[in-house]
Design a binder for these strands. Structure first.
Lengths: 339, 339
DNA sequence: TTGTATGCGTTATCAA
DNA sequence: TTGATAACGCATACAA
């Protein structure tokens, strides 16, 4: 590889490396003619500072790590865009990791990030994650972490979440106001707070409007399409089937739509449907799909801003930081499927 | 940050850094008792080798750079997954960059990658890119590059592409066999070969089946939804409107569906529709959407494998490499919209 | 205004 | 079997 270093420039120009280094940084100590010579040579030979050398010296990498359950999911790819927009402006780089909803991969990736000496971590838990001791280690070694969307209260650091409770409450309320009496809740078996909060919102809306809570139309499934299909079929074949379904996860929603299609169920006509989803195409379905959308880009952006706030905090002020949880409102996109 | 180094271990155990280093690497020169002591201490204190220091020494980063037009696009996020699956297994890390379809961002990102000393580049051109001199520089400094999907013949390196010509040919053929006589082509104004190839496939299918080519139903638009809407509306309001539309880009397809919805056009009934797209939800539409899907994951995987093949090539064998273009078949998912 | 020396974490080379 | 030293690229304290 043919990349020019400061030493190369120094040798070519017959001066010392420190002079070149200072000239490149436009130091006041260096004479104009020298600066000019160095800058010219550097430009002509395409000098690029080596950030690796700098990292070693400053013990920081100017890179931040992002760990998400999966990239191929509009919520997370949009959140990554939000993060990148901030990191890019600050001259930081972004290392992206995926857990694929597996706690094992999550642990490995966290270790990778530490090894890679990222300056901070932005992450969203895998659905499998319950024990968070691997994240406690980040706290222990003093590596800043900001969690977004799927967060854990046991970890020290800022959090950015959607208002999942309100999102589910409003979605349920909409269905109730549209005359639905038996609203099923399709969720994921997971200890993540997002799912608990969404379930609470659903329950409270039922209670507020004096609808009975019926455990038999609350399904806890996994992300596997087969399991979702079984759950949906069970709901539909009940003696007293639900007249509406609230699906509280993006990926779940896709499988629901697939089952509806297979079973020739027309949403809105046969069954009302609302789901948590950031899919842009929800609007183009016929009937179009009512969604609770999370402000993914904004959540990513906010998380990154919080992380940089911490990265800019002097060590001696670190213990003064009050870690907070920022809650951002979801958007209820009312379309046809909720009728 | 509290991260243990080799020196720390050496000091604690009262031996030299080189001994510790060798013990950690299980060198034959080190006695078993010493090895045991070192390994135990390292384990207990969570020693993690510093890849930055290694990079500096070996002048390689064990990271590869990926540059794609946008992450929030199922084709590219799936391709990234394919790349990651290979890189991960090799212990390499992946730096992800986005051009946002802008050549300016593409140039900046390429420079970032060089600065970051990635060991190789995997990329897909922005739609704006015409002049590729910024990539020529990769060739000049000897940084290996593999291009996928949107490639340039002017750059030295392996290429992985979908069989865009055949994909478009088969899609057009399907529409013709379904009785369509006036098939519009909606594309992007871009000098990328993928779009040229798709257009050729379309033209050749028309010719093969003796359908006239009509320039007035070939639209070259941009990715902006407004422009696409104008183009579609022009087509639909013609005295002699098309009876089918072939959309040759994922993002274009979404805008088309949006316009259809707005204009109350029911695909299949009013107008046949086929598009290039990797959207998983295409199947759940009513009517479901016929797509030409690119094998995104496989293309990413293949590209990464080719890159590692080069990274493993000894310097003296580098000039023997025959750079090839690998063409991978697309899949025609025949659904309802093409009827 | 410029040069010399040092250190960041690691490993290879040479010496003991 | 172990240790001392230099080097990777850079920035800086110190010397001149």
């Amino acid at each position: 590889l043919e990349i020019v270093t400061i030493k190369d420039i120094a040798k070519a120009l017959n001066m010392s490396a420190s002079t070149v280094s200072r000239a490149l940084r436009d130091s006041y100590e260096i004479s104009e003619p020298t600066k000019k010579k160095v800058l010219e040579y550097a430009k002509k030979n395409n000098y690029r500072p080596n950030p690796i050398a700098l990292s070693l010296k400053e013990n920081k990498s100017r890179a931040i790590g992002i760990l998400v359950p999966e990239i191929d999911n509009p919520y997370f790819s949009q959140a990554i865009n939000g993060i990148e927009s901030v990191a890019y402006a600050k001259g930081y780089h972004v290392l992206i990791f995926q857990s694929n909803e597996s706690i094992e991969r999550e642990i490995i990736n966290i270790n990778h990030m530490i090894s890679r000496r990222v300056d901070g971590v932005l992450m969203s838990l895998s659905a499998e994650t319950d024990d968070v001791s691997h994240l406690q280690e980040l706290n222990d070694i003093g590596l800043p972490i900001v969690m977004f969307d799927r967060v854990s209260e046991q970890i020290k650091g800022h959090k950015v979440v959607a208002d999942n409770y309100l999102g589910a409450y409003e979605a349920t309320e909409l269905l109730i106001k549209n005359g639905k009496k038996r609203i099923a809740h399709v969720g994921v078996a997971s200890s993540l707070s997002i799912f608990k909060d969404r379930f609470s919102g659903y329950c409270d809306a039922l209670e507020k409007y004096n609808l009975p809570f019926d455990k038999s139309i609350v399904k806890e499934t996994s992300y596997s399409p087969e399991n979702i299909e079984i759950a949906i079929k069970e709901l539909l074949s009940m003696a007293n089937p639900p007249d509406a379904i609230l699906s509280v996860s993006d990926r779940l929603a896709l499988s629901c739509l697939s089952v509806f299609k297979k079973q020739n169920i027309v949403i809105a006509k046969d069954l009302a449907f609302v789901c948590f989803s950031n899919l842009k195409v929800a609007d183009y379905f016929s009937p179009s799909v009512t969604t609770v959308a999370q402000p993914a880009f904004e959540m990513g952006k906010k998380s990154a801003e919080l992380l940089f706030e911490i990265l800019n905090t002097k060590l001696r002020d670190m213990d003064k930081i009050q870690y907070q949880t920022f809650k951002i409102k979801t958007t209820l996109n009312i379309r046809e499927s909720s009728n």
